[in-house]
């Protein structure tokens, strides 16, 4: 039953992805974490579009990409790349930060 409920959601999600037809059209944006800073710190993405963020952590220590506004939270181990999907979003500024180094790792997504 446990397995089933999971694979069911999985299947449902997959179908939705396929049906919306956005699986291959998703634009990709790169963000790099270096010395506990985000590059770029300000990223502009299109309005009402789902985008795929590739977050490359070049530090040796882990970082957690977190945004309350975007509802995202993902641990990115040191020297690795994490994938986070965001959107579709309305126009506005959505701040994000690195939860492990919040004083320096600050950034925002600008939706235009």
């Amino acid at each position: 039953m446990k397995k089933n409920s999971f694979s069911y959601t999985y299947l449902l999600g997959f179908l939705l992805v396929v049906l919306t037809g956005s699986a291959f059209a998703t634009p990709v944006f790169n963000i790099e974490i270096r010395n506990h800073l985000f590059y770029p710190a300000e990223l502009t993405i299109p309005v009402d579009t789902k985008v795929k963020l590739l977050i490359n952590n070049t530090d040796t220590s882990a970082e957690e990409f977190e945004s309350y506004e975007l509802n995202r939270e993902k641990v990115i181990p040191g020297k690795s790349t994490g994938v986070v999907f965001i959107g579709p979003l309305k126009k506005g500024v959505y701040p994000f930060f690195g939860e492990f180094f919040p004083k320096t790792a600050q950034g925002s997504i600008h939706v235009d």
Partner: peptide, 9 residues
């Protein structure tokens, strides 16, 4: 203001 420059904030 807080800014990023030369690998530091």
């Amino acid at each position: 203001h807080d800014i990023n420059f030369n690998q530091y904030r």
